[in-house]
Design a protein around this nucleic acid. Structure first.
Lengths: 174, 174
DNA sequence: ACGGGCATGTAAGCGGTTACATGATTCG
DNA sequence: CGAATCATGTAACCGCTTACATGCCCGT
């Protein structure tokens, strides 16, 4: 349950609504940790009930902004300092690569070219993110986007490298 | 539902049991696409019922080896060629990095040092994988491990780089 | 007045994990 | 004969997605 602490962390920057948080999780964090609005609203409700966040203000269009409480702040701090990191990685594109030998060489080339492009675009997107301000949270976000850039560049380079490999087709003679 | 096609793809290499496949998904693919035995046995049952795989042999300790059928082969080929790639990435360590500014500088340094080590170990593990034979599927696995190496090296380098950054502490004066 | 974006929710279902449970065989 | 490992399963739960549904406000 990382989303819970993700929301808490974002609210540590300042009050925000479910809508705001949804946008951040889609656009800013979409490429490293996506989340959809139903999960977010549900979790906000739970966090509020448990007193980790509280209603900060109500705006037009029944907008509800939440702020983090003292309890919430200590909760996120404890999580960051003490809770074990979940290193789970699950990348469908890499699972697919195990089966490249089952693909037609032409299909594989097309596939890798498209993958390369996609990853390069993602890398560029985060590279363009540029400065995030000189606030503490802005500087941390800068570190995060750097990770995203390096990650997607690594995948783009890999796809490019894979294109240079002799295609390992199934049944060359069989 | 990628696991389904993951199993199909591995069975395309030759007959295997749920136990065999579980081991491959834990050890060989654990760092890019982990899967646990309950899911695997359940999925094998379903695949068998649908005729995409079939019982190949029964061994000692009630071992049941499955083989892929013609239907299954065409299913995995269609999936690889036509089904859209799921590019979802969800990395808790990168979500955490958004909140580095909430951590004590000392805790952060320790955290990054441990992360760096972890990723370097993973990279080394896959680097050591070395040759996977000259069979078509072995060559593809080589391409996959190359991706894993590049991915984990990128993360290790990132953690090392992050250690050189001035820690963006919260509330410098507040 | 109405269309589009802001804003919040509910419900069903899926994919995956964890814990529990058990049987069979080999090796020392 | 006991421990370790091979081997297969079930049940409960969790986190997340998708589809569905609705209300409100602003600009044209």
């Amino acid at each position: 349950m990382s989303l819970r602490h993700g929301l808490l962390g974002l609210l540590a920057e300042g009050p925000a609504s479910g809508y705001d948080l949804t946008r951040r999780f889609q656009e800013e964090l979409g490429a490293i940790y996506p989340a959809q609005h139903p999960k977010i609203y549900a979790e906000l409700g739970r966090l509020c009930a448990e007193g980790l966040i509280a209603l900060a203000s109500e705006g037009p269009r029944r907008r509800k902004a939440y702020r983090i409480t003292e309890t919430g702040m200590s909760e996120i701090r404890v999580w960051l300092a003490e809770h074990e990191v979940d290193h789970t990685v699950r990348l469908q594109p890499l699972l697919r690569s195990v089966f490249f030998w089952l693909m037609e060489p032409d299909d594989l080339r097309r596939h890798l070219a498209r993958e390369r492009l996609f990853y390069a675009e993602q890398a560029a997107r985060y590279e363009a993110y540029g400065e995030c301000g000189d606030t503490p949270n802005g500087q941390s976000l800068r570190v995060t986007t750097e990770a995203a850039v390096r990650l997607y560049r690594a995948l783009a380079d890999w796809a490019e490298w894979a294109l240079t490999m002799p295609p390992a087709t199934a049944k060359p003679g069989d």
